[in-house]
Nucleic acid binder design. Structure first.
Lengths: 207, 207
DNA sequence: AAAAGAATCCCGGAAAACAGGGGTTTTATC
DNA sequence: GATAAAACCCCTGTTTTCCGGGATTCTTTT
């Protein structure tokens, strides 16, 4: 009997998943949690074989949660569940130890397949995910950039529509410094204007 | 017996909704469709009392679908289902004839409440939605801006990270013209730089 | 504890975007 | 079929961002 824990903040979705998994005799849903904190607590008292984990949670990003869980309990297999098929998101999840990536528009039995596949030690990607990764070799693929505290702060202010000067005033630093951070953000995101940075940051839920 | 049709492109979500609605004796799910086109076709052969409609569909925006359905079948009540609680999205759905707006992180029985409430002729907003609308009087609230074909085209190119000159070259128009469109976009979105336009457009799924 | 690497800070000139003006052609509406 | 409104087009001067640098402090890693 494979023990599965669901981490997902949409109750209706949880209901759907439970229902689908119930239909398989070899799988047992041993718990469902709506945010990162409560799973981490629950895991201290006992571990499942597999965690089905939504990438977008209210309290912590799925990428980070995935990393934390894997650090503490390396035997637990993690399947990422997401609405998005952005390459960097997929890549970051896999780098952080996820064994599978399934889009939420997948059919129910795709999830069951995924569970059995990863219990066999395989890596499972749903068809749309594979499609998204097809013409990009995994080595060159860039993950979600790791940005610093200060950069994040500035990114958020830029996202609010403030100009460099307004940001400089607010943070009591020179406009040149703000521009320097702006430049580094463009560098890290691999683009050459702020607009693209904000667009990507918004896609990766960094704002 | 209240006949309900579900429009939602995530099969797992559909499964969850069906399961929840099944538990209520007065409600019957008479159909489920994954995109706008198939619902419109199905409606020609018979109408339900209520449509539970996801705002983000693969082929058409929920806002437009809502408008179309209401134009042809004004008696069908529509409840919008969404992950987002952005004011302009909520406002646009209600303006297009939706009678309810429920966030996907709502509990299952909230959906059932919503269905009964709107069948009684009420308007139903889930608690988080109400929260989002609280400090903004409905009159002043701005809807998602209506942008023209050309503007959309330019918005998308800007979103790709192209500069004004690159866009001008690609569309065989003057850079001045591109800047003019850019200006109008800022005007319509009520902001004063392109970055904010792209951020909002991305939130409203206009890209 | 030293070196390498990040992160935060600063500068000046070139290249864009922005603001505020005006004009013509489509598209609805009466 | 007139007319008003919207869409689309263009221009000039000012402001902001971009991009080439470089310096100093934190933080890791060895």
């Amino acid at each position: 009997m494979i023990k599965v824990v669901v981490v997902e903040d949409h109750p209706i979705m949880v209901e759907g998943l439970k229902n689908i998994l119930r239909s398989d005799a070899g799988i047992e849903v041993s718990g469902a949690y709506g945010d990162g904190k409560s799973v981490l607590q629950a895991l201290e008292k006992g571990q499942p074989d597999v965690i089905l984990m939504d990438v977008n949670l209210p309290d912590i990003s799925g990428v980070n949660l995935c990393g934390e869980v894997k650090k503490k309990y390396e035997d637990i297999k993690i399947i990422a569940l997401s609405i998005h098929d952005e390459q960097p998101v997929i890549h970051s999840m896999l780098q952080n130890g996820a064994s599978g990536y399934v889009l939420k528009n997948a059919l129910g039995n795709e999830i069951i397949h995924a569970i059995y596949a990863i219990m066999d030690g395989e890596e499972y990607l749903c068809s749309s995910t594979k499609e998204a990764l097809k013409n990009a070799d995994m080595e060159l693929l860039k993950a979600i950039p790791r940005i610093t505290r200060r950069e994040k702060e500035i990114l958020q202010l830029i996202g609010k529509g403030l100009t460099t000067m307004q940001i400089a005033d607010q943070l009591f630093i020179s406009t040149h410094t703000v521009e320097s951070h702006r430049k580094n953000l463009m560098e890290k995101f691999g683009v050459n204007n702020t607009t693209s940075v904000v667009k990507l940051a918004s896609e990766y839920k960094l704002l």
